[in-house]
Design a protein around this nucleic acid. Structure first.
Lengths: 136, 136
DNA sequence: CTATTTTATTTCGAATTCGAAATAAAATCA
DNA sequence: TGATTTTATTTCGAATTCGAAATAAAATAG
């Protein structure tokens, strides 16, 4: 192997999936980044901005903007940590919870249709191969 | 399988690779999009804006901006097609050619280091699996 | 205990990105 | 042919994104 065809195919696959998700979440008035932030909070519960950043893979300056948007829409609250005043904890509001419980199952169902083109064995294999090249 | 872990891993891997490439091409004063456009022209030769768009996977309005930047830097020329005046053909200038022949091999070498964590067989398998979920 | 370094986050300005509307030329239709 | 539709591309304004600098609090060092 001496070309970058794999990268082309990887980028193209990611583009297809993320466009599809983006289209869905845009109907909720959310960007993909915003949705991923909500998703992290929905599954892992309240966390600091830095923790959230490590989950959603966007620059810290961008994340400030994103969480500000989400707070303005009333989906999350951001409060300073009592013990470490540098930290600000993000958590879903009732409205954010409600949004995600309305929407998340449909999101999974829709994306699973695509992923189910693979057998369980193939899907695990794909995960394994992606992890190998995705580290660092 | 009933979760979206695969998508998380896919996005994370793509993020890692694209950040790495981005970092390299930023040193040349190029964005990832600009570099991908140059790459397409370098390998497939002159083509219309629409053809280029199908290769680089960015919105048409964004591509207008990108090729304008590249033209301003002197890496490409954009000329109207004589036969179909709607079309505008993009092609590398001598300077653009020179840039890519200086830089492309290093780019491949660097990315191959990462991809070579996989055997040839695994890499072909990864391509196969990604194509399955990447269609549409 | 003060000074320095590290960690957490935001602000700022600039670059990039997008969708929708606009423009213009080619193709098709009636 | 003239009218309409389709195709190719750009322009516009707004949203998102980033990197670098700024801010502020905690941790560490001397």
């Amino acid at each position: 192997m001496n070309d970058l065809k794999t990268i082309t195919i990887l980028f193209r696959a990611t583009n297809t999936l993320s466009n599809d998700i983006q289209q869905q979440v845009n109907e909720l008035g959310l960007s993909l980044s915003s949705f991923m932030a909500l998703e992290a909070l929905y599954h892992k519960g309240a966390m600091s901005v830095a923790s959230l950043q490590s989950k959603v893979l966007i620059a810290n300056s961008s994340l400030s903007y994103v969480i500000d948007q989400l707070a303005q829409k009333g989906y999350i609250t951001i409060i300073s940590d009592t013990h470490d005043k540098r930290k600000r904890m993000c958590s879903l509001t009732a409205s954010g919870q409600e949004l995600m419980s309305d929407v998340y199952e449909k999101h999974v169902a829709r994306q699973r249709i695509r992923l189910n083109r693979l057998t369980d064995h193939e899907e695990l294999l794909l995960q394994h191969l992606l992890k190998k090249i995705g580290l660092d």
